[in-house]
């Protein structure tokens, strides 16, 4: 609850900051539109050549794209900007100000910077997802909806743990921008269902960068492909990831010596 309240406060601050530059809204709209348009365009070219890609129907491929953009937008909305800010704070020593605040430091650095215009990606993603689901025609019953919602939440938790663990490395290494670039490049593979990749890539996309849990598993839940075991596995991975990244964060924080003196 406390986390949500803080997130809301920072979102309001972020909105005030961004609303001062309203032209950026249109720029973001164009960017999101082009990104979504070209991704769907490629899907269109692909499905013009085949009816099903490893068993995924066109509408299901579009659903994967929807989930991909919804998660992408969420990362860019709060996780990426907050943690980039955090890494800069470690470098410059201004993390001191955060640490003196009477709140959990991990929570503070995770929500401190909200780029509200990135909501456009989330909205586009969810809209495309809704359209795709409507086209699928299959009844999305309460069980499937629940499975989808929990898969999405678990995926978000795993992605968050991954990012916080990466960011925590800033306590030891000065420059990590390049590592984050690698995340983005690999994340692009999530536009397609993981099943199409060869085994060695699938392992990398599940374990090294959690694309599988973030995008494919929720999409599988929606299209009725998910079995209970996978969802249970995702829950297990999510709990381990959250706990492990928390431990790692605490370990890193002890390393921080501050900039004062």
């Amino acid at each position: 609850m406390n986390a949500l309240r803080l997130l809301w406060v920072f979102a309001r601050v972020g909105a005030m900051g961004e609303l001062a530059y309203r032209a950026n809204f249109w720029l973001q709209l164009l960017e999101s539109f082009l990104a979504m348009g070209s991704t769907l365009g490629v899907v269109a070219v692909v499905v013009s050549q085949t009816d099903s890609l490893h068993g995924w129907q066109p509408a299901e491929l579009v659903a994967v794209v929807g989930v991909y953009f919804a998660i992408l937008g969420t990362i860019n909305l709060v996780i990426a900007p907050s943690l980039s800010q955090f890494m800069q704070d470690v470098r410059e020593g201004t993390l001191d100000f955060t640490l003196t605040k009477p709140e959990d430091a991990q929570l503070l650095v995770s929500v401190s910077n909200v780029h509200v215009f990135k909501l456009i990606d989330v909205v586009f993603g969810l809209a495309v997802l809704a359209l795709a689901t409507a086209r699928l025609g299959t009844e999305v019953g309460p069980v499937q909806a629940l499975a989808f919602a929990s898969a999405l939440l678990l995926g978000a938790a795993i992605v968050y743990s991954f990012w916080i663990a990466l960011a925590t490395m800033a306590f030891w290494f000065i420059r990590l921008e390049n590592v984050l670039m690698i995340f983005w490049m690999v994340y692009g593979a999530g536009r397609w269902p993981l099943g199409i990749y060869p085994d060695w890539m699938r392992w990398g996309l599940t374990l090294l960068v959690p694309v599988a849990f973030a995008v494919t598993v929720p999409a599988e839940a929606l299209t009725g492909r998910l079995d209970a075991a996978t969802l249970g596995g995702a829950a297990l991975v999510a709990s381990f990831a959250l706990a492990g990244s928390r431990l790692f964060w605490r370990r890193g924080l002890r390393q921080y010596s501050g900039a004062s003196a």
């Binding site: 490629v42 692909v46 050549q49 085949t50 009816d51 099903s52 890609l53 490893h54 692009g188 593979a189 536009r191 397609w192 199409i196 990749y197 060869p198 890539m201």
Partner: peptide, 13 residues
């Protein structure tokens, strides 16, 4: 990525 996608298309067909 594109290579994998198009190989999958060729396989599916």
């Amino acid at each position: 990525i594109y290579l994998v996608v198009w190989s999958a298309v060729a396989d599916s067909r």
